[in-house]
Amino acid sequence: MTSGASRSAATPLAAPAAISLIGVGKSYPSGTQALDGLDLVVRQGEFLALLGPSGCGKSTALRIMAGLAAPSSGTVERHIGAADGASIGFVFQEPTLMPWARVAANVRLPLDLAGVGRAEARRRAEEMIERVGLAGFGRAYPRELSGGMRMRVSLARALVTRPHLLLMDEPFAALDEITRFRLNDDLLALRAAFGCTIAFVTHSTYESVYLADRIVVMSGRPGRVTDEIVVEAPGPRTAAFRGTAGYAEQCRRAFAAVAGAAAASEPR
């Protein structure tokens, strides 16, 4: 397995790795080679965005990090404890809630499955529901909520165990722009409060520059890392950041990198 990864920029963030994928390959039984020689390090405390054209293997990489899929080749090193709900929170593209359970029960699920006591689980779930801005909605059913609120429930469920690592697979892709911006800000606030490491898959260059400390660009067929952008944000990441020239310039760079990656993944 040869490594197809070539980094255009060295990683200046010197934090130790939270999780490393080393030369990871993944082929599905259908014969699709989703990943080949993927080298990817998520550093402790960073906000990493995974950016790449559709089908390049971002979800596959995320699932391998979560331990939900096994790599066909290469190794995965976890420095955050075992791959379970206590150390990893996962947010899917859809809210993925249990429609028969109330918001509180949905948020509590990881604690219930881990055998946390009833009263304690209840208290922690309620606290997290408040943290994501859904105070008072604990007894609602998912279908009574808007798309943005459902995504908040999903976020609360992922955070309720206070995981070290939060893996998010295009979580806000289905939301309208206003809702998406608001959730972006709330996500940054939650991250500041809990200090968790985040790996965030997105299609949107704007979103990746706004949120991430570092953007890893992937190209597909098979999936590998083709570029890396360290995002520089002088001030706090607020709506004002979106108006700066630096933001625009970095979005342009990210866009060029993805366009290049997309061209490289064209079926030949």
């Binding site: 990893i88 993925t96 249990m98 990881p110 219930d112 499955l113």
Partner: peptide, 29 residues
């Protein structure tokens, strides 16, 4: 059952029994 929900149960190390009672049976209702 929604495969993502199954993944969520797997990630949280749910036993087969827990998956049956908390996920499969309500989903099958």
């Amino acid at each position: 059952v929604d495969p993502n929900l199954r993944d969520l149960f797997r990630l949280n190390r749910a036993s087969r029994l827990a998956e049956l009672l908390r996920l499969r049976i309500p989903a099958a209702l």
